[in-house]
Amino acid sequence: MGFKKNLLLFAVVIFVFCLPIVVESSYYMSIFIVIGLYAIVAQGLGLLMGWAGQVSFGQAAFYGLGAYTAAILATRCQWPPLLCVFVAPLLPSVIAFIIGRPILKLRQHYLVLATLGFGIFVFVMLKDLGALTGGPSGLTGIPYLNIGSIIFMTDHQYFYLVWCALGLTLFCMANLTRSPIGRVFKAIHSSERAAEAVGIDTASLKLQAFVLSAFLAGLAGALYAFWVTFISPSPFGFTTSVEFALMVVVGGLGTLWGPVLGAAIIVGLTEFLRWAVPVALPHAGGEFEIIFFGIIFVLIMLFRPKGLLSIEKSSMAVNNPATLRSTDA
């Protein structure tokens, strides 16, 4: 079984490697770059939602914080871009660490609202701390990323960089979820009380997952900044947060490749809709594709509700007769 899996993995690597050679159009290359970037964010969010059982509707804030930190360090402090890519994700990680402990204590609705509120807070800050962030018009003049003498200027070059980062992310995620920690996360999913009762600090594990998810979002943000070389607040708003959550849910929770698949589906769909809808409705403008995202979201929740926040496709705990027994007061 290991051989088949390895073969498949090898095929995927070859496919990704050959993609820029086969695809000439810069437009298609840029779509693949966006998929790679979003997949990195979705990996982190997938860990949070699928394994740690928490939800975040503010992930775009970490993505934005990574992008802005990288951009500010590179333009105002003149740091070498490669250093910025490594340093920038630390800010969202530290922020996640600080807010994580109290926020992750919240349940259900309250967690959704608190993360959503945090996302909007950061978005407003990016727009209104003009002196630092350039305000609504954004930051320009971000240099190209270079590693030694290789300058990542074209989309074809950047594709390799982003997908290498994604590969590394997948490697780390595979390590984590297949380690004893992955098993512990599954256990927490099943019964948090029992996990606590054998001495597992569940709050701390959830916090660590939250911090890692913020780090990955920040990393993707930093890579984004050096790719587009110009950033404004608009890609880091609530809609993007919803898209990230959608990618994770569409791809399937608790799976390694799900977030990648989800990112590909959502980015692909966005591009398709941006092309198709104006053909059908010539006067349409703006981000109307969110209609379809909303509908997809609702449909998935309606027809695959068990898929959400559960590692298995169907929750076994429901059938356990023990859960039906009442407790002794």
Binding site: R183, K186, A187, H189, S190, S191, R193, A194, A195, A197, V198, I311, E312, M316, A317, N320, A322, T323, R325, S326, T327, D328
Partner: peptide, 14 residues
């Protein structure tokens, strides 16, 4: 201090 649960709290997914 370890305990068991009267109404069973096994990790049913493991």
């Amino acid at each position: 201090i370890s305990r068991t649960f009267q109404n069973l709290e096994l990790f049913t997914n493991l």
